[in-house]
Amino acid sequence: MTDRVTLDSAALRVLAHPTRLALLGHLRRHGPATARRLAELFGIDSGAASYHLRRLASGGLIEEDTERGNKRDRWWRAKHAQSLHDPATFPGERADSRAYAQALALAAADELRRVAGAVPVLPDAWFDASVFSDHTLRLTPDGLEALKRELHAVIERHAENPEPDDVTPVSVRLQAYPLPEE
């Protein structure tokens, strides 16, 4: 698996669906799985899971894990650990960028609902290390661009650190956008 991929227009179109984002995220975090297992985890029909997995494969985001499974159960794995998409670098793909961003926001909202249910039972060390914050900044588009670059640089520094044996996947979300009118 490669570290990251920059999303092109075709990949953006494939990922413009919250279910596909969720399936890809699961494969990244937990490793290979079958359509049947993913369908159980996400409460969807196994045929729908298979369809979404084939779409992810056609977009070059996942691949069949041929070392596992049989004719009845196909295993799938992510081809990369991280997707990168900066709308400013692909101005000709605005519609695809917007659809992807919308699906990403919907998937994040679903994940936050699951996290909210787990907060009461988080071990103290993980709860103390977590952060749930909300900041409203007043920025220009250039100011938001500068903030985005700085935050990504911090994440990159931490992503490059060698991992000890006792690590746990941690979700880091950067959501910065102008607030809609009330």
Rank of each mutant, 00 (worst) to 15 (best):
R4M: 11
L56Y: 07
G31W: 11
V121I: 13
T19H: 15
E145F: 13
V167Q: 04
E150N: 08
A153L: 08
V119K: 03
H52F: 03
G69H: 10
R173D: 04
Y177P: 00
K79I: 11
R54P: 10
H158F: 10
A108N: 02
T168L: 06
E182W: 13
F42H: 06
S9T: 00
Q102A: 12
S130N: 07
D8S: 09
I155T: 15
L104N: 05
A57N: 15
R13M: 01
T2R: 05
R54I: 15
R149Q: 12
D124Q: 04
G117H: 02
K71F: 13
R55H: 07
S130D: 06
A109P: 04
E181T: 03
A125S: 12
R36P: 13
T89P: 00
D110M: 09
L15M: 03
Q102R: 04
A129Y: 09
V121R: 15
G92Q: 05
T89Y: 00
Q102D: 02
E160H: 05
E111I: 15
R37V: 15
W75Q: 06
E182M: 12
V121L: 04
P169I: 11
V115R: 15
E111P: 14
A159G: 03
R36C: 10
S50G: 14
F42W: 08
P164K: 01
P32S: 08
S50I: 09
A101Q: 07
M1P: 14
A39V: 10
G92D: 01
A101D: 02
R4T: 10
A35V: 14
R173P: 05
G69C: 05
R4W: 14
P141E: 01
R94A: 00
A81V: 13
S50L: 03
E64V: 14
L84Y: 09
E111Q: 12
P164G: 02
L174V: 02
K79S: 13
E40P: 05
I44D: 08
A16W: 00
A49E: 04
R4V: 11
R113M: 12
V119Y: 01
R149M: 12
W126A: 15
A118K: 07
A33Y: 03
L15D: 00
L147Y: 09
S130W: 15
L84R: 08
S46W: 10
V170Y: 10
D124W: 13
E67G: 07
V5M: 00
R54G: 11
E163A: 14
W76G: 04
L144S: 07
V121Y: 15
L56M: 07
V170L: 13
V131F: 09
S50M: 05
D96I: 00
V119D: 04
S9G: 03
A16T: 00
F42K: 14
Q175W: 11
P178A: 10
F42I: 02
E40G: 12
P123L: 11
K71D: 13
A16P: 14
A35I: 06
R28M: 14
D166V: 01
S83T: 07
A116Y: 05
S9L: 01
T140F: 04
V154K: 13
E145P: 04
G31M: 05
R113C: 14
H30R: 09
E64D: 03
G117K: 02
L106I: 05
E145C: 11
R157G: 06
L112A: 12
G47W: 10
I62H: 03
L106D: 08
Q102H: 06
T136H: 03
E63L: 13
H80F: 11
E93H: 01
G47C: 08
D8G: 15
